[in-house]
């Protein structure tokens, strides 16, 4: 299958992605901003056809085999659709898909179960990639696109749990990776500050079931961000982004930007005015005071 699409003016490399549930609903706007970023990189994005939910936390929490098959069906679909590289946006989906891929490659009985449900075994033909990886490899593209340098924004990078933690699952060496993400933010003229809470958990699904507990967790993260001198938090996971704005009671809230949204602001990508309106903690007073919108 050709991996290039002819759009008339220029040929764009086609990139396939796994949408996942949050990008299709509560984080839809961040999804849109991400696709704009891909366009900026000269790529054309298409979703995996007929994808299903990866099972998220609930599936592996109570039935690990179910989690493997739910995630496994998506990888199998990608293989059938002739997709070599499947880009995953949400870190949690990424860990689920990667875990399933490893299990299917080593456990023949699980692969047989997958075949029983979906009609075919997975043969191992798909490379799973994590979206920020490709973005952080191309800071120069974004540097060139900046027309509205975000000077005055002082952010702390929030990686959360799964973006960096399970190295033997995610398969990349984490320190250079963190540096690359920092560089990506810096080319937008955002100052990044060192702090201690970049990997402290946002509370995940306990934000719904144990709100009081997660209020405390988010307050601590905010408090440390404020002490570091930040006026915003920069997140790479759509779910962390929601939790960090939704919860917390005691410490004054900070707006939490999703990485592609910042690029959208700096490059004035179509739609960027709309995205900043969708926050639970309104970032517009901050952006206005710095003359950035």
């Amino acid at each position: 299958m050709s991996n290039v699409r002819n759009t008339g003016e220029k040929r764009l490399r086609r990139v396939h992605y796994y949408p996942g549930c949050s990008l299709m609903s509560s984080a839809r706007d961040f999804g849109t901003s991400l696709f704009q970023m891909f366009r900026l990189m000269g790529t054309w994005v298409e979703p995996l056809e007929d994808w299903n939910c990866c099972g998220a936390s609930p599936a592996h929490s109570v039935n690990p085999d179910y989690a493997t098959l739910l995630a496994g069906r998506n990888i199998l679909l990608a293989e059938r659709q002739g997709i070599d590289d499947l880009y995953v946006v949400c870190p949690s989906c990424f860990v689920r898909l990667r875990t399933a891929e490893k299990i299917l490659a080593t456990d023949a009985s699980m692969n047989a179960k997958l075949a029983k449900a979906c009609g075919r075994e997975y043969e191992g033909g798909v490379r799973l990639k994590f979206t920020p990886e490709i973005l952080s490899d191309a800071p120069s593209v974004f540097e060139k696109a900046v027309v509205n340098p975000l000077a005055g924004l002082r952010g702390v990078l929030y990686f959360g749990c799964l973006l960096t933690r399970p190295e033997w699952i995610t398969g990349f060496d984490i320190r250079p990776y963190e540096k690359k993400l920092k560089k990506l933010v810096n080319v937008l003229d955002v100052e990044t500050l060192d702090w201690s809470h970049s990997k402290q958990c946002c509370g995940s699904h306990l934000a719904v079931t144990k709100p009081d507990m997660v209020d405390g967790m988010v307050d601590r993260i905010r408090d440390h961000a404020r002490r570091a001198g930040a006026n915003c938090i920069i997140a790479f996971c759509p779910l962390c982004q929601v939790n960090l704005e939704l919860r917390g009671k005691e410490v004054e809230p900070l707006p939490v930007f999703y990485i592609s949204e910042l690029i959208g602001l700096a490059a004035k990508l179509p739609g960027h005015e709309g995205w900043v309106k969708k926050h639970l903690v309104d970032p517009r007073p901050l952006l206005n005071s710095l003359g950035l919108v």
Binding site: S57, H60, S61, C161, L162, R165, P166, K199, C201, G203, S204, H205, L206, K210
Partner: peptide, 9 residues
């Protein structure tokens, strides 16, 4: 209550 954050791992 364990949310599978992998910090302990």
């Amino acid at each position: 209550l364990c949310i599978g954050c992998y910090a302990c791992v």
